[in-house]
Design a protein around this nucleic acid. Structure first.
Lengths: 153, 153
DNA sequence: TTTCTGACGCGGATTATCCGCGCATTCGGA
DNA sequence: TCCGAATGCGCGGATAATCCGCGTCAGAAA
């Protein structure tokens, strides 16, 4: 993982829909050298996957809400079970177990408040033994939306 | 945007590193029909981009922190300026302007607490006229991490 | 019914990727 | 110092994927 790899990663995080030739020209390497590096980065898990980023509005999921959760108890089994539930919930894009007053933060994408309400009710019903309370932070504006990581230094 | 398009989007959000043939076989369409649909979805902005998802650990940015911000005032000019700053901050992966007690939520990826502290100091220094207070929610575990949207219904 | 539109499958032309080869550089022991 | 082993490179042919024009067909509108 040298500087060349980092440059490649930086490019592919912005746009992975690019022929090797373009990357090769940008960094002054042959096409096959670039291909070999990319396939190695995929192999060793540095590149986890290549995905399409879809417009929420275009598929009718334009409403983003951050949900802060407090849970009843933090026993191992309870946590595991709840996390599996979250993982299967299609409304939940991302989810973190965090320090502080709240226990979980969810990033939820839904069509509208009605669908959000259905999600919350489903969660409070399915997981009533676990979830104590929740707080909704409705996104009025998504300033930035990516999973891009800086690769420098 | 019919059910076929939705199926394609669902597949490409999980893995866009797939030849058209695979998608075509999965949905029972010819390769060229699939290619035409995909290129149309890119054209009209439904597919915003194709990106590589990189492992934070692999590039030394394994620490994820959610930051809740309260700002001094919500005048248009102030907000715009601050949002431009956030957009340029490489540590900030995502950022939402939200309803409720807090004004912004940032998703930040850094190497360690030291680097996080540097980021916070830089923000509080550069944007001292804007940011009133912040609260850090350190991710002990990332349960789920994607921008994937459900396409059904 | 006729016409128009849009999406389809087919298949050849073009591009891109995969991969083996030989070469240059680097890095550790003898 | 000298000499293998390992690593990464560029080249170029084989393979695979994409691009694109053509003719066809089904559904909507005249």
């Amino acid at each position: 993982m040298d500087q060349t790899d980092r440059t490649i990663l930086s490019m592919l995080q912005k746009n992975a829909d690019v022929p090797g030739k373009v990357v090769a020209d940008a960094i002054g390497l042959s096409v096959s050298a670039v291909e070999r590096r990319i396939s190695k980065l995929k192999q060793d898990g540095t590149i986890e996957k290549i995905v399409a980023v879809v417009s929420g509005k275009a598929v009718g999921r334009g409403l983003t809400i951050l949900v802060e959760l407090e849970i009843q108890n933090e026993h191992r089994h309870t946590l595991d079970q709840f996390q599996r539930w979250l993982d299967r919930a299609s409304e939940v894009q991302s989810c973190w177990y965090v320090t502080g007053d709240v226990d979980f933060v969810l990033l939820v994408a839904v069509r509208d408040l009605d669908e959000y309400n259905q999600f919350i009710e489903r969660m409070m019903n399915d997981q009533q033994a676990i979830v104590r309370k929740y707080k909704s932070l409705i996104a009025l504006k998504t300033v930035k939306r990516s999973l891009e990581l800086p690769t420098d230094r």
